[in-house]
Every structure is written in structure tokens, then in C-alpha cells.
Amino acid sequence: MLELILQALYSGLLAGGYYAMIALGLALVFGTMRIINLAHGELVLLAAYVAFEMERSFGWTPLASIPVALVVVGLTALVIYLLIGRIRQDRELNSLILTFGIAIVLTNLILMIWSADIRSTSNSWFMDGVVLGDTLFSMRGEVIFCVIGVLLLAATYWWLNHTWQGRALRAVASNRDAAKLMGVNPARIEALSFLVSGVLATFAGVAVYTASVVFPAVGHNLTIKAFVITVLAGMGSVPGVLLGAVLIGVGETLTTTLAKPSLQELTGMVIFLLILFLRPSGLFGRKGMVKK
């Protein structure tokens, strides 16, 4: 039993690595624009399907398709950004409906192009087992993308804190008007946050394709997962996102081990609602989700 629990903790930890990549993209855009991009999961999914297409048509390994996916997802993210820019009133709610609509469009485009079949990498190198300390099992793909996830998160953290652009982005996030006075162009910074979010989504998508399976409806689930993690993290703290992601990852694998797999989704939802009601500023954050 203990062994099973340890294995669940380990698998949850690994999943947390790429969940964090998914969530950070959503959290960044939310931080700068106060907008919840409900099409974020579909961006992740799009990257996964680009990887699938490259593998099917040209036999590329998923890692090699990252540059192609970066272009596709980056452009899509920019289009979403431009569309949001055309909203004239009540941006907070209307953007929700707009990105909800975009998510439906992307899901159905993916369905039309790649059908509803379940896809995952056929590259066996990623599926080889990696055993840690004789007992803890995982696939190579899981480990690789967990490491990539943590590195990307660290890089983003560094970028936010130590580069001019990163600081400008944080300035826009905390006070748009003050940022303007400092000579920052908020529109450009918002576009930038969307691009960075696209980059994170790309890596996350290739990770999902390699370490798990994809089908068109997965995008919606990923968006929700990202949102749940963002709420846990308290909107906009990078270490918070990582912790929240690990918490959800571990929560899910523990549910699978201790109860049953079908309850896995419930765990995330219940944690989410508990946080919303009991600690609306998130576990690690300050920003208010409650009125006034």
C-alpha cells in the first residue's frame, strides 16, 4: 500500500511539472489583462496536434516539431489577442464569452482536420520505462517534460524579475496607469504576455501528446485544469503555480490510487470550489476574486 502511495505521489509530481506549464500561460495573460482565456487549453491541444501531424507525415520526433508548433500556436495566440482588442465594453465578461467561442471554433477545427480519434505518440523511446530507486516507475517522456516544465517555469520567473520586459509586464499587471506613466506601452506588453503564454502552451501541448493522450475534447479539460491551478496559486505567482500544479497532480493520482480513476476530475473541482469559497485570494496570492 505504501509503495502504491509513493508511486502515486511520484506520478503526481511528474504530472505537476507539465500542468504548471499549462497553467502559467493562463495565469500570465490573466495577470496582465485581467482576462481568463478560455481558449488556452485549445492552444495547448493545437500544439499537440501539430506534433501528431509532423510525426504522422514526416516521422519527426515530437521534440523536433516544437519550432513548427511555436509558429502555429504563437500566431493563433496573437489572433486571439487582436480579437480581444476589438471588444469595446465590459471586457472582463465579454472576453470570457469571446474566448469561449474561440475555444469552440478551435475544438471543432481540430475535430474536422484530425477526427475524434484518440492520439498519442508512436515514438517508443518516450514510452520506455524509467525506474527510480527500484520502485518508482515512470515513462521517459513524463520525466523529460517534467524537467522541461520546471526549467521553463524557472526561466519565466527569471524573465519576469530580471529583464526590462518582464518588469514592464509586472508593472502593467499591478497598475496599468502607473505603468503608462513609466513609459510602458500596455498594449505591447499585453501582446507579449499572449505570445509568452503561446510559447508555454506549445511546450505543454507537445508534453501532453508525448506523455499522455489527446482527443478534441481534451482542450476544454485542460483549460479548466489550468484555471483551477491558477485559482489555487492566487493569480499570478509563479512559484504558486508550480505548487498548485503539483497539488492537483498529486491529488489526482492519489484519488486514482485510493479511490477510483473516475473520481479524478472531481478532486480538482472540489479543491477548486473549496479554495474559491474559503480562501478566495488563492493559497499564495492576494488579488481579490470576491466583490468589493
Partner: peptide
């Protein structure tokens, strides 16, 4: 994928 239309409509 015809539900795509609803997405376009919403947006």
C-alpha cells in the same frame, strides 16, 4: 465539427 458555427457566432 459543425458546432464551429456556434463559436463563430458567439465571438
Amino acid at each position: 465539427g459543425h458546432q464551429l458555427v456556434f463559436g463563430v457566432l458567439l465571438g
